[in-house]
Write a protein that binds this DNA or RNA. Structure first.
Lengths: 223, 223
DNA sequence: ATCCTAACGCAACTGTTGTCGCAGTAGGGA
DNA sequence: TCCCTACTGCGACAACAGTTGCGTTAGGAT
């Protein structure tokens, strides 16, 4: 759905890669490798275009011209990472699948700081924001099968909105770690998965027919 | 729980305000007002120390010395904002309360870009991150009463972890708008609230006795 | 083997960010 | 009223981010 092959992952630019083989490809590999290295070694704050260029053994202007800024670099790394063959687990129950996914999310978020760095970058660079959006859209789309399997098993009713189910189940983990910075909370992860699974089984994630509307509050919770 | 009075909201620094009346207080008011103005007028990207100083009619070095960086400025604004008298709504049911809170979250996130700016800043500045953490800790603590009321009504069992309930209910809204950047989704907000309310009523947010453990996945969902 | 040109290296330049030393100003206490 | 000193204003400075023009190199096609 997103950038397709392994060669044309260059974001933003048109699909036409003028000179795919040779120097360009070599330099791109060097630069992206330098980005990943700097990210895990020194974190996001140490990631400047200059540092990446020096590490990659490439001139500053080359990086500026091809990737524009740090966000562009991270977007390219992200597009490349999104092209893996990840598939959601299959434990036999919706609750089990959601809990397993939450475990992976928690591990990914508390492990190497790459993910946090990419999310931080998405608030600075439109390019990185778009790449992250593509990445998550595809990941959530792949997760839809856990709901489809649950429907096939008769666990949840047809018409259940798969994406909403997965978002609702995983969101508390992101919230806890990324925004609240409270560290991993495996119990929250499991309870959220169990709660969403139960709610889904009761048909709460099927859009109801009548267009009932909740009265919208005015004052803001997070002003 | 966090910074107490209206005068000593200066974050980081010790509680002793050397010269509360007069020039210092006046300059602080000017600077914070300038921050708020620039934030709503031009967004977060236009928020540099220089721009704030110029708008406030104050010298650059003054701002650098008292607030250190943009994150310090936002942290001060945030501490001041957290001292309001906000209380969660009381609709009579847990689901209604959670849905109403979610409505406010959605409104706050899609309205003035102040919130998004503060969250973005929290990824850059440790000061802003701490301030945001304080802010949310207090907000979630205040929200605990909606669960306590539900317990008193017999809607949910005793021992229900209030904070986890509120986090699980609100997280999908933050996820959808801040991270996925999908725009407001009132249906998701209501379904998440309903789902969590149902799960809580079944005792799913009570920490169970046996230390059962889910098998943690290895590969990462969000690498 | 030869040419074309996309992409790179290089250096110089501008604008911004953040720091430092020093002098001036204005609260607040004696 | 006068002094003390916390805080501010000011200018100079270093470091960094980002851009531009121009010459050079090396794929890829003929």
């Amino acid at each position: 759905m997103t950038a397709g092959g392994a060669a044309s992952a260059m974001s933003g630019r048109a699909a036409v890669v003028r000179r795919p083989g040779g120097r360009s490809a070599r330099i791109r590999a060097q630069v992206l490798e330098a980005v990943r290295e700097l990210l895990v070694e020194q974190g996001f704050d140490a990631l400047s275009v200059d540092a990446v260029a020096e590490r990659a053994g490439v001139h500053r202007t080359t990086v500026y011209r091809r990737w524009r800024d740090v966000g562009g670099l991270l977007a390219d790394v992200l597009d490349a990472a999104g092209a893996d063959g990840w598939q959601p687990p299959d434990t036999g129950t919706l609750e089990g699948d959601l809990a397993a996914v939450n475990g992976e999310v928690e591990a990914g978020l508390t492990g190497e700081p790459v993910t946090a760095a990419l999310i931080a970058a998405s608030f600075r660079s439109p390019q990185a924001a778009e790449a992250l959006q593509r990445f998550w859209d595809e990941r959530y789309a792949r997760c839809a099968v856990v709901v489809e399997r649950a429907v096939a098993r008769g666990e949840v009713p047809e018409g259940t909105r798969a994406r909403r189910v997965v978002v609702a189940a995983t969101a508390p983990v992101y919230q806890q770690i990324l925004l609240l910075r409270g560290g991993a909370d495996p119990l929250l992860a499991r309870q959220a998965a169990a709660g969403v699974a139960l709610a889904a089984s009761r048909g709460l994630f099927v859009d109801e027919r009548p267009g009932r509307r909740a009265e919208g509050g005015l004052s803001s919770f997070a002003r």
